[in-house]
Design a protein around this nucleic acid. Sequence first.
DNA 1: CTCTTGACTGAGG
DNA 2: GCCTCAGCCAAGA
Length: 109
Amino acid sequence: MKQETLNFFDKVYEVTKLIPYGRVTSYGAIATYLGAARSARMVGYAMNGSTGKDVPAHRVVNRKGLLTGKHHFDGTNLMQQLLESEGIKVKDNQILNFEKVFWDPLKEL
DNA sequence: CTCTTGACTGAGG
DNA sequence: GCCTCAGCCAAGA
């Protein structure tokens, strides 16, 4: 597996798909894992194409655990419902117990 | 090639 | 802890 052959977007998709059930991570964590710590924005930007794919983009939030990308989902609160379906409590677009459900690819992988 | 956009983050007030 | 500003980097026009 030569990840170097994969594009930045593809790498983001791969890592995002590795996020365990009931866990979430931040754009920065993914970006750092990809070696582009300063490209966290690109991670979110890549997610634009994640909708409709196997990528659980709803498990990716910003560093504050805020569902900044919920507006990119079809429904108004679809992202929140998806998270709650996995046992993740969400209140006012913000993930509760964020530290407990946080999944760091740098440490877990 | 240059400019704009952005689902971010860290630092400063 | 919240708000604002600046930096960062890749993709699209």
